[in-house]
């Protein structure tokens, strides 16, 4: 029973981690909170529902479609809401917050129009398949989610540390001016960051759809808020922190639902961050440096 809960927790946590990665990449490079990330993720989920459910495409094609659509959204977000604010005199840190909130309101209501208000089921061909090991039941969906999440995290880590673009991204996150003096095309890197973060959001959208078998225009908000909590938990702009923070939140939520009061499930994330902020404002993995950059 406990083991089963741990498996549930890890599955949920790995999804949270991936959502948080999208926030943390953008924050790391641009120093802003992308309030529209949750809604981009929601769009990814709807692309999944439409392609697999309505069009009958196989799952792998749904992933590709979601990545393409959310990448384009990411590009548009950067081009029309973030870029106009960059380097402009007298722009406070409030401006990007508000304009990305604008995007989130726009996307949520657009989806509401297109797909309707209710929950849409997300059926996968293997949603009922499960494996019994002793008394423990593991669903194939859980394994798929877990494997994809892990692959994505490994892929991102390798990309950031080994490839030229990834290194340029890290240099830009470290110090935008220095990176640009060293010959990094920071404008391109910023676009790349937002696009990659959005694409990761799109993948996360399909994974959440699969995990909960339901997709709605409001899911962006609740998942987005949790993503925000996680990046504070793990340290802003910290990739490893986002992963561990996601797992911690997933496990604690699952444990609370199983052994405590499930009503408080949505508050755990914030109770944790309020405690963390008071004890260790830079997050579990954040360094002092990243705190000064805020």
């Amino acid at each position: 029973m406990l083991l089963e809960q741990i498996i549930n927790g890890i599955t949920l946590g790995s999804i949270y981690a991936i959502i948080a990665l999208g926030f943390t990449l953008v924050f790391g490079v641009l120093g802003i909170i992308n309030m529209a990330h949750g809604e981009i993720f929601m769009v990814g989920a709807f692309v999944g529902v439409t392609t697999t459910g309505v069009l009958g495409w196989p799952l792998w094609m749904a992933f590709i479609a979601a990545i393409v659509v959310t990448s384009i959204l990411g590009y548009l977000l950067e081009r029309f809401t973030l870029r106009p604010l960059r380097g402009k005199k007298g722009v406070s840190h409030l401006a990007p917050l508000i304009s990305t909130i604008g995007v989130s309101i726009l996307l949520e209501n657009l989806s509401h129009h297109i797909f309707g208000a209710g929950n849409k089921p997300f059926n996968t061909p293997f949603s009922e398949i499960s494996i019994n090991i002793g008394s423990i039941t593991v669903y194939l969906v859980q394994i798929v989610i877990f494997v994809i999440s892990i692959l994505l995290m490994i892929g991102l880590t390798v990309w950031l540390s080994k490839t030229k673009a990834g290194k340029a991204l890290r240099a830009t996150a470290d110090n935008l001016e220095t990176a640009s003096i060293l010959g990094v095309d920071t404008k391109k890197i910023i676009i790349l960051t937002v696009v990659v973060a959005s694409a990761i959001g799109g993948i996360a959208g399909i994974l959440v759809g699969m995990a909960f078998n339901s997709v709605s225009p409001q899911m962006g908000l609740s998942m987005g808020l949790k993503g925000l909590a996680i990046i504070i938990l793990g340290g802003m702009g910290n990739v490893k922190g986002a992963m561990v923070g996601g797992l911690i939140l997933g496990l604690s939520e699952t444990m609370l639902v199983a052994y405590g009061d499930s009503g408080y499930r949505d508050a755990i994330a914030f109770i944790m961050i309020i405690v963390i902020l008071l004890l260790r404002p830079q997050g579990i993995f954040g360094s002092k440096v990243s705190q000064e950059r805020r």
């Binding site: 802003i32 909170i33 909590a229 914030f270 309020i274 902020l277 805020r294």
Partner: peptide, 10 residues
């Protein structure tokens, strides 16, 4: 900054 914003939102 954003830390306070998120904490109060929380």
């Amino acid at each position: 900054g954003v830390y306070l914003a998120i904490a109060t939102l929380g």
